[in-house]
Nucleic acid binder design. Structure first.
Length: 231
DNA sequence: AAGTCCTAGTAATATCCGCG
DNA sequence: CGCGGATATTACTAGGACTT
């Protein structure tokens, strides 16, 4: 998946709220949209080098999108819309060895009271897939979430319900960097979510974690990594 | 502890307008 | 009057800050 638009280097100054960051581009103070509602506190640190995209749109309040952050030697993508897209494309092109017998791929599929990112449809069944965006890695272990997420937990319980009703189900953690060797739910930060994820696994929900290769021009799926569900 | 509002952008939907 | 394209409006997202 190529990264479109005019990408420029910049320096992060401050996050004003969850959508807006103050940045320094070409020695000028500007404002950038932050397309990720997580905390990212170990990424968004003053003076850190980042990549932004210049956007020409007079209806927007910010002139840039904050897309990537340099963390030591690793480039981390923070756009929370990308995992969804990249996973959709992977399923659409049948690049993943799961649920191979579907004939149609849908986005934003409604199921009961909730909505899932991707639906794989064949004559007999529907597979519901949820994509999660991971930006946090500590000691080679990718972790989710990076902020307590009551909604995320609720969503997992919905998936468990769908699974118990006979639907195929999957949760894919897309790690937007390539320095992770394992994935684990973030027990210290959100034990309820972690517990729910473990239960989902026990109840037959397919859970996978995939890292990404990222550079200025593009982002692509890299490799599947082992998952540690236990605390 | 639970509920409401706020933020910025996107996508989906609704409305409008000009043209044949 | 009907159609397509352009424009306007609405719904949605999700966690934090705030109020009750």
């Amino acid at each position: 998946m190529s990264i479109k638009g005019d990408i420029q280097e910049a320096f992060f100054i401050k996050r004003l709220n969850r959508f807006v960051a103050k940045i320094l581009v070409n020695n000028k103070i500007e404002f950038a949209h932050v397309p990720n509602t997580g905390r990212m506190k170990e990424l968004l640190i003053k003076d850190r080098k980042v990549l932004v995209r210049k956007v020409e749109d007079k209806n927007r309040k910010t002139k840039y999108d904050l897309l990537m952050v340099f963390y030591k030697d690793t480039l981390v993508a923070i756009d929370s819309r990308l995992p969804n897209k990249i996973l959709y494309k992977a399923f659409y092109n049948k690049q993943l060895p799961y649920f191979k017998d579907y004939v149609e791929v849908k986005k934003e599929i409604n199921f009961g009271k909730s909505r899932f990112d991707i639906g794989l449809v064949n004559r007999k069944n529907i597979v519901l897939i949820e994509a999660k965006c991971v930006t946090l890695v500590e000691n080679n272990i990718a972790k989710f979430p990076d902020a307590p997420t009551e909604r995320g937990t609720k969503h997992i319980k919905e998936i468990i319900k769908a699974s118990s009703e006979g639907f195929g189900t999957g949760i894919f953690f897309i790690i937007q960097r390539n320095d992770a060797k394992f994935f684990s739910p973030n027990w210290e930060l959100d034990s309820k979510f972690s517990e729910a994820l473990k239960e989902a696994n026990d109840r037959g929900v397919l859970i996978k974690a995939i890292t990404c290769n990222i550079n200025k021009e593009k982002m692509s799926l890299n490799e599947e990594i082992p998952i540690i569900l236990e605390q």
